[in-house]
Amino acid sequence: MTMNIVVLSDTHLTRVTQELQALCARYCDAADLVVHLGDWTAGCVLDYFEQYRLEAVCGNMDDLAVRMRLPTKKIFRVGSHCIGLTHGWGYGGDIQAQLLQAFDGVDVILFGHTHRPLVERVDGRLLVNPGSVFSGRGPQGRTLAWLRAGTLLHAEIIEL
Rank of each mutant, 00 (worst) to 15 (best):
N129F: 08
E156I: 02
V128W: 10
P130K: 05
V16L: 04
L46T: 08
A56E: 00
Q18E: 15
Y27F: 15
G43E: 12
A149S: 12
Y48K: 12
S80F: 01
L64T: 09
F49P: 04
G131L: 06
T11Q: 08
G131H: 06
K74M: 00
H154P: 04
N129A: 04
H81A: 13
T11N: 07
R148G: 10
V106T: 14
V133S: 08
R125D: 06
A149F: 09
D39A: 10
V108I: 09
V122E: 06
G138A: 07
Q140W: 14
S135H: 09
T151V: 13
Q140T: 08
N60F: 09
D32N: 10
S135N: 13
S135I: 09
V57H: 00
H12L: 12
T151C: 06
L110T: 01
I158T: 07
I109M: 12
A25Y: 11
L54I: 02
T11S: 15
H87A: 05
D10A: 04
M1T: 08
Y91A: 10
Q96H: 13
L23P: 03
L37Y: 01
G43D: 07
I109F: 10
L23V: 06
S80R: 13
H12E: 10
V119Q: 10
I109Y: 02
A155M: 05
V78F: 00
Y48E: 14
R142I: 02
R142W: 00
R26I: 04
S9D: 07
T114S: 15
D123Y: 05
N129Q: 07
D94Y: 08
N60E: 11
V106H: 01
I95D: 11
L85S: 01
A145N: 14
R67D: 02
Q18R: 14
V6K: 05
Y91W: 12
G92A: 12
E19D: 10
A145S: 13
N4A: 06
Q18D: 15
T17L: 03
D10K: 04
V119M: 12
F76E: 00
D10M: 09
A25T: 13
I95N: 11
M3A: 09
F103V: 03
E159Q: 08
V133G: 03
G93L: 07
A97Q: 12
D32H: 09
Q51G: 14
F134Q: 03
L99Y: 08
V6Q: 10
L110Q: 04
P130S: 08
R148I: 03
I95E: 14
T14H: 15
F76Y: 02
A30D: 15
Q98N: 05
D39H: 03
D29I: 03
L54T: 02
V6C: 11
Y52H: 07
Q98W: 09
L70N: 00
A30M: 03
V133L: 11
L144I: 13
G88T: 03
V6A: 11
P71R: 01
H115Y: 07
G141K: 13
H81R: 14
L85Q: 00
I75W: 00
G59C: 10
W146Q: 14
L13S: 11
L20V: 08
V119T: 15
